[in-house]
Amino acid sequence: MDRVPILKIGDVLIVSIQGDLDDQSVLTLQEDLADRVVATGAIGVIIDITAVEIVDSFVGRMLSTIAGMSRMLDAETIVVGMRPAVAITLVELGLSLGGLRTALDLEKGVALLSRHGTQGTSDLSAVGL
């Protein structure tokens, strides 16, 4: 099982998913993120899926769950870097991912959150989980 590192930059948590995660790792990431949102009082979560080659119903559900969970904890989730082939496949699979905000890349994702009141700072701390 791989543990996905969660970075904290200012008030925002950033997760960059690398490679092909098994289902248990996906669930662990979901729980780790919930814990980190509460522990840090983050106002935003950015999930970078640039390196993700497929999003199936399991990963899709994880993304929606994280978005719903963080919304309840007063944080906004933005998924960035979805590959075009992944987007096309998701639509055909039937996954709407309603309520999930997306941005083309990390920079645009951060900009989206900034507009919602985040102060971008240079306080970059890798959180070893």
Partner: peptide, 17 residues
């Protein structure tokens, strides 16, 4: 094609799970 690869792998993931 990349899109068809992605479709096939996604279906395989669903059915294997």
């Amino acid at each position: 094609s990349l899109v068809d690869q992605t479709k096939v792998v996604t279906a395989a993931s669903e059915l294997a799970r």
